[in-house]
């Protein structure tokens, strides 16, 4: 069987699984901040958290590109779970030679934390920032020792509940302080983590945003064809058509940017690819969210209509792991250093 076909089958299975379990009640419960254990169990039973783990280590062994397409589907379904985070966490942890983790795993997208001491006595120093599902998930952080050596530190979930803090989609984002915290395990940072975890997280969020945009736009198209005003569907009006056409252009560009990033995963210049993706997708996210709400009118502003499950995620994810401006500066600084004539080979190939 073609790899492409296997990937297609797995993505279809995931689609069905998400759709089956994501009832309105399940979504509402997840947004209170309660951990959706049943949903997690269903996703874990399908092996999705181990999608990026090689088969030899007990995972699904998906190519990074396919695994990241799965992340995109989780965005399409507005899945209220740290699936993308756990996929990344397991990929990183297994890359250090360890077994995959059975629990949900999250990561810190802040710059590397400090590390004092060595071996079993090592103590972290610093801040993990807002950690996705940080109250229940195990946490991976890149920690830098005094000599500049980079380690991947595994930190257990907090013993006491953290103050509730949620993003705009009401996904848990509690702040975790790491000063004085002793990691459960410390391993030399694998190659994948060389640029730090922020660019990797940026690529995950870019994929999720492309998935969420796709569905938000599907809703908008459906609504524009169904909703009648002045005796015809609002999609007949040029003003509405032009908004949606413009949104489709944003979506196409965002998809292209996210695609180049999933091809670059694990390669030599993940940071640049992440910057191109997060900058372009993040910009499209804001514009598309604006347009789909405008098309839906007051209906889209209600709790009743499911559009907000997607748009609130777009508004959250565009700021997580670095907003557009941050990543634009990464690109711009590089271009300003290399000069005008160096830009074309940078994009088209040397």
């Amino acid at each position: 069987m073609e790899t492409q076909e296997i990937s297609r089958i797995l993505l279809d299975q995931a689609d069905r699984l998400f759709a089956q379990h994501l009832t309105r009640e399940a979504r509402a419960a997840a947004e209170t901040g309660a951990w959706p254990e049943n949903l997690w169990q269903a996703v874990a039973a399908a092996g999705l958290p181990l999608a990026m783990v090689p088969e030899t280590a007990g995972g699904a062994g998906l190519a990074p590109g396919d695994a990241l397409r799965l992340v995109r589907r989780s965005g399409f379904h507005a899945l209220p779970l740290p699936l993308a985070e756990t996929m990344l966490g397991n990929a990183l942890w297994v890359a250090t030679g360890e077994k995959p983790l059975a629990q949900p795993v999250s990561f810190s997208a802040t710059p590397p934390t400090g590390l004092r001491g060595a071996g079993d006595n090592a103590i972290l120093d610093g801040d993990a920032g807002a950690v996705p599902w940080g109250d229940v998930a195990w946490l991976l952080v890149v920690a830098e020792d005094a000599a500049g050596g980079r380690h991947l530190a595994l930190v257990a979930p907090p013993e006491a509940a953290l103050p509730q803090r949620r993003n705009l989609a009401f996904e848990p984002r509690p702040k975790r302080h790491l000063a004085g915290v002793r990691p459960v395990a410390l391993r030399p940072a694998p190659r994948l983590a060389a640029p730090g975890l922020r660019p990797l997280g940026a690529i995950l969020r870019a994929q999720q945003m492309v998935g969420a945009m796709e569905r938000a736009l599907d809703y908008a198209l459906l609504y524009a064809n169904e909703r009648q005003q002045f005796g015809r569907p609002i999609g007949k009006f040029q003003a509405v058509q032009h908004m949606l056409a413009s949104a489709a252009g944003q979506f196409a560009a965002a998809t292209a940017a996210a695609d180049q990033a999933l091809e670059a995963w694990g390669g030599a210049d993940v940071e640049f690819a992440a910057a191109l993706a997060k900058a372009r997708v993040g910009e499209a996210a804001g514009k598309i969210a604006e347009i789909v709400h405008q098309v839906h009118g007051a209906m889209g502003f209600t709790q009743e209509h499911p559009l907000h499950f997607l748009t609130r995620r777009l508004w959250s994810w565009r700021d997580e792991c670095g907003n557009e401006a941050e990543w634009q500066r990464v690109i711009g600084a590089r271009v300003m250093q290399a000069g005008g004539e160096a830009l074309w080979p940078m994009l088209a190939g040397a």
Binding site: A252, A253, A254, A256, A257, D259, Q260, A275, L276, A279, R280, E283, E324, A325, W327, Q328, R329, V330, I331, G332, A333, V335, M336, Q337, G339, G340, L343, L347, A348
Partner: peptide
């Protein structure tokens, strides 16, 4: 703008380059 250390210019250029990269791919 070459060689300058100006965040505003870097942001504006970075945005244009991100757009261009996506267009080239499309």
């Amino acid at each position: 703008l070459r060689g300058q250390d100006d965040p505003r210019s870097a942001e504006a250029l970075g945005r244009l380059v991100a757009h261009l990269a996506a267009l080239l791919r499309m």
